[in-house]
Amino acid sequence: MAFIELDNLSHIYHQNQENEFYALCHVDLSIEEGEFVAILGANGSGKSTLAKHLNALLLPTEGHCRIDGMDTKTAGDVWNIRQQVGMVFQNPDNQIIAAIVEDDIAFGPENLGVPPAEIRRRVNAALKTVHMQNYRTFAPHLLSGGQKQRIAIAGALAMETKCLVLDEPTAMLDPQGREEVLSTVKRLHGEKGITIVYITHFMEEAAAADRIVVLAQGHIVGQGTPGEIFSMTDRLRQWHLDVPFAAQLAEGLRQKGIRLPKGIYEREELARELRKLAPGATDGKRNAD
């Protein structure tokens, strides 16, 4: 059984009322332990609703959500589930509660009744993992957005979480903050084998995932590797998603008669292909006219 299993899951807001709304509609999705899955979708596609099922902040109206075999509908398992799945939200200012960084990270384990020495160890380890050990005694409001998000991630790590669900963690950050958060997430996945569910609007961030899941109007409409998803430029537009720079450029060049292979979505790859087409290139390939 997969670590995360959504089984025919529907979520209905305002059920049996005039404004009844299916935010998620019969969704089936399995995520294996150690996987890095990015979830893409337009505003209102159901991404955040899906994320909130993964640690039982929302419960399915129909169907089931199972984490490590535990059903989120089983009231007795909710705390176990939340220990396994940590959440990081979009707004860095809405999820920090303590006045000192290390207190904030200690909050979770304290609530679990972890002994003080063990809390100390976990807090230090978590801060080290997100490269924030020098900010242990800082007041969170003096940190940048990217640093705050890393503190939020450290808070989840101190719970010894197996899985991190990040709901647009970089939407409110500047480019440097985005890079800090993304590289932290990649490291947690690569070095610690933490399962990552990463919701984003930024295609270049989704490119870091093993698998991309696309949601539209509460349905899963596409799944595949970043290469598979990003080469479908028409579908991306249909799904109201950005087309990555290299795919957009390659498409424009193809329309001008430049013979480029399909499926290019990375800059390096496009640059390589263009060099091959240059006048005087050694392998003799040139554009049509």
Partner: peptide, 26 residues
């Protein structure tokens, strides 16, 4: 990387023109 392309384009639209020009046989 050695492709004789005019740099300086800021948007994808302009860039496409620069690249097409660089790839056209002289």
């Amino acid at each position: 990387a050695g492709l004789p392309v005019d740099t300086g384009a800021l948007t994808v639209k302009q860039g496409i023109e620069h690249i097409v020009r660089a790839l056209s046989p002289k």
